[in-house]
């Protein structure tokens, strides 16, 4: 094992070993797990909590497939460590609907507009849409505005056209008396 010199010395020793116990509020539940301090948030969600909607497309913060909501904000979960989420809130797409038969209005909008093909970027796109809606956009975004807002998440299948429509449709659905987004 490539042991770290630092682990034996005084100041760093205070911060404990290579493992930590964290308690995270994930999808409206507190979960407590022991994690390796180098485990990324994405791997923690996927491997420890089984939230496999969090997809790893690049692991260097460029594709956006692993986007989750961290304290309500969209973040790349491959660029955070699991230990950093102790005491914080994380949402994945499983928080909207876990059951394919009971889709959330945002997911309904994506289904209606075929705003997906292979599904790999889809959880990220859905969560980003949720954030767009929640950040108080009362007005339906224009085509160009939606494109700008979702440009941090790559989709290789759709050419984005149907995703743009889905985001706009989701805005209408959530404004028009649908379930709270």
């Amino acid at each position: 094992m490539t042991t770290s010199k630092a682990s034996t010395t005084s100041i760093a020793a205070k911060y404990g070993t290579a493992r930590r116990t964290v308690t995270v509020h994930v999808n409206e539940r507190d979960v407590t797990r022991e994690v390796s301090t180098r485990t990324t948030l994405a791997d923690f969600l996927r491997d420890e909590l089984g939230l496999v909607s969090v997809h790893l497309g690049c692991e260097h913060g460029e594709c956006g497939s692993c986007t989750v909501l961290f304290d309500g904000h969209s973040v790349r979960s491959c660029l955070m460590l699991a230990v950093q989420t102790d005491g914080h809130t994380v949402e994945t797409v499983e928080s909207l609907a876990g059951n394919p038969a009971e889709l959330h209005p945002i997911q309904e909008a994506f289904a209606e507009e075929q705003g997906l093909q292979c599904g790999f970027c889809t959880p990220a796109m859905v969560l980003r849409t949720k954030e767009i809606i929640e950040t108080g956009r009362d007005r339906e975004l224009t085509d160009a505005e939606v494109r700008h807002e979702i440009s941090g998440i790559l989709c290789r299948c759709t050419g984005y056209q149907n995703i743009v429509r889905a985001v706009q449709s989701a805005q209408r659905r959530c404004r028009g008396g649908g379930r709270d987004a």
């Binding site: 490539t2 770290s4 630092a6 005084s10 911060y15 290579a18 301090t37 180098r38 230990v83 950093q84």
Partner: peptide, 27 residues
């Protein structure tokens, strides 16, 4: 693509952070 091992420290004050930097410098 996974991070290599490291010792993780999460100080809650600038003083502590500076103390860590003083001890480990460019490591």
């Amino acid at each position: 693509m996974k991070p290599p091992p490291f010792t993780y420290c999460d100080p809650e004050s600038v003083d502590e952070a500076v103390a860590l930097k003083s001890e480990y410098g460019s490591d």
